[in-house]
């Protein structure tokens, strides 16, 4: 397993006239970890859904290792090498943890025992080993998030799309997930694109950040550059208004805050 290069070119999407995403372009080179950030409603999940095939972009192209994938169905996108998690986790509630991941692994083999073996390995890696016989419905939220990651990884992706897998995790759990993803990336070279509000995780993981606001890309660069970009600060902290006194620091939402 190795990483794939994702190329997103001028994609746009409207919902009943509302422009959710317009003219967004970015690259995630093979083996890189990039983050997609922005305030709520910025169009991050819409971008994800277009990459993952939930709906086709109205304009623009998406390619994985130069192969166009825009407009394919989600299962075809999965087969072409993209695994995803959902912002609102969607485990198969009535099935066991092991069955959840086995189903993901069946994307690569039609042999069930082989898929089960792969699922057990992943569950060990993610520290869910002792819960594999539990029903997914009986897991805590952090465990469900881990299960989502395990199921997505089981499909054998070369690009992993993570939609807010850190939200709702405690700082120590966040650090565990960050460590796991870093190790995974180092071991397998898998490309990772994450949507994240938890800046602690974004800063620790990503080499490059794309910032969306009102469906448009307003900045991109290294974490260091992006967090000092005036356009980004304006979006997160609010515009400096000449008629009102300067804020003393506590008013706006800081990128460092763990938005929920």
């Amino acid at each position: 397993m190795s990483g794939a290069h994702l190329a997103v070119r001028s994609i746009g999407k409207r919902f009943r006239g509302l422009r959710a995403v317009s003219d967004v372009t970015f690259d995630v080179p093979a083996g890189a970890i990039h983050a997609l950030i922005g305030p709520n409603g910025a169009g991050k999940t819409t971008c994800f859904n277009m990459i993952a095939g939930v709906f086709a972009p109205d304009s623009g192209t998406i390619a994985l290792d130069d192969r166009p994938i825009a407009g394919l169905r989600p299962d075809q996108i999965c087969a072409s090498g993209i695994g995803r998690t959902f912002q609102i986790v969607k485990p198969f509630m009535g099935l066991t943890v092991e069955d959840n991941v086995t189903i993901g692994a069946l994307a690569r083999t039609r042999h069930v025992p082989e898929a089960r073996e792969a699922a057990r390995r992943l569950l060990r890696d993610l520290g869910l080993d002792d819960r594999r016989a539990k029903l997914a419905a009986n897991l805590t939220l952090p465990d469900r998030k881990r299960l989502e990651v395990a199921r997505a990884l089981a499909t054998g992706p070369r690009l992993l799309l993570l939609d807010e897998v850190m939200a709702g995790l405690r700082p120590t759990e966040t650090d565990q997930m960050v460590a796991f993803l870093k190790d995974l990336n180092a071991r397998t070279g898998i490309t990772i694109l994450l949507i994240e509000h938890v800046m602690r995780a974004v800063m620790a993981l990503s080499q490059h950040i794309v910032v969306l606001h009102h469906g448009e890309k307003i900045a991109e660069g290294t974490p260091h550059d992006v967090t000092r970009d005036p356009a980004v600060l304006e979006v997160y902290l609010g515009q400096e208004d000449a008629s009102s006194p300067p804020r003393s620091g506590g008013g706006g939402r800081r990128p460092e805050g763990e938005a929920t």
Partner: peptide, 15 residues
């Protein structure tokens, strides 16, 4: 079983 439990997640898992 996957489709029964959650069709959207099933499709994302390659089904």
């Amino acid at each position: 079983l996957a489709v029964r439990e959650d069709p959207e997640a099933a499709q994302a898992a390659g089904i």
